[in-house]
Amino acid sequence: MLKNRLNKLVLLLVLAAVLIASTTVFGAWEPRREITIIIPWSPGGATDIMARKLQPIIKREFGVNTIVLNKEGGSSAVGLTELITSRPDGYTVALASSTILSLMGQNQISWGSDRFTNLCLVSEDPMLLAVNKDAKWKNLDEFLADVKANPGKITIGTSASRNVNHADAVLAAQSVGSSIRQVPFNGGSRVIAAVLGGHVDALVLKPSETISQIQAGELRPLGIYRKERLASLPEVPTFQELGYDVFPYGPVDQISYLVAPAGLKKDVKDKLVEIFRGAMLSEEFQEFSKQAGFVCNPIYGNEFDKYIENLTNALAEVAQKVY
C-alpha cells in the first residue's frame, strides 16, 4: 500500500520534472496555476463585469483558471498599488483605467505608469453628451449655440470631479469659446436621475452607463467624444464631424486596460497578451461589448504603448489646463 503510494509519488515527480524541463527547453511560458485579476473597483461594477465575463471564456479556450479579486478604494489607486507591489511572475494582472492615468497626471498618487507592464487595451468607452428627451435642444449645434450665448449658465452633470467626464464637459464648452457649470455627482446613476428629473441640463457619461435610457428614448444623445461614430449608437454624430474640436490636447479616452507589474519577462507578457486578447476577440465577448455599449479592440505591443503614452500626456495636460 505504502509502496504503491510512493511509486505514484515518484511517477508524479518525474512527470513534473519532465514538464518543467520541456517548458524551459522550448522557452514558452505557460501558466501553471491560476491567474489573479485584480479589479480595483467594487463587485458588480462595469469593470468587474468585464472580468467576470472573460473568466469562463479564458477557462474554455485556454484551460487557464482565473480569480477575480476586488480591491476597491481610492478611485482604483488601492487595488493598483497592490498590483505594482506584487511579483511580476505573470500570475497577477489588473484592469487599470484612464482614472489612474488621470490621478498620475494630477500627482495625486506617489508612483507613475513606469510601475506597470502594459499588456493590452480591453475597452474603449467614449463619453457622450446627452440631454433629457424633453429638452429644448434637438441636436449638438443647438446645444452648443446656447452654451456659447449663455456662458456659465448651462449645467452638465458628471460622475465625479477631475476625471475624463469632467474634462469632456468643460472641453465641449471650450470648443465654442464658452463655459458651463459642471455638477459632479457620486456615480453615473445619480447623474442620470438628475437629468431625467430635470435638475441638471445635460450629462457627460459613458454609453455603457446610458444606453438603456437612450434606447428607451428617455435621454437624447447629442454627440460622441470620438473620432468615429460608435457602432452601437450609429445615429449619434461625433463632435469632430460637426466641426467642434474637443480634443485640443489629444484624445482623452475613457479606457480600461490590462496591466501587470513592471519587470515582466517578454515570454510571459506575450503569453498573457495571447490569452486575454484571444478571450476578448471571441465572438461571445465581442457580442457582450456591443450589448453593453463599449468598444473592444484589444490593441497591444508598440501600438498600445504609444497609445498609452499619448493618453497619459493628454490627461496630464488636461489636469493642468482644464480642472
Binding site: G44, I49, Q213
Partner: peptide, 27 residues
C-alpha cells in the same frame, strides 16, 4: 423602470442583470 439602482445592493443586481444579457431600464 429607469435603469437606476435605488441602493448599493440593486447597483450590484444591475451588473448581474447585464451579465445575463439584460438591459435593466424602461424597455
Amino acid at each position: 423602470t429607469l435603469g437606476i439602482p435605488g441602493d448599493s445592493v440593486t447597483a450590484v443586481l444591475l451588473g448581474g442583470l447585464m451579465l445575463h444579457g439584460l438591459q435593466p431600464g424602461p424597455q
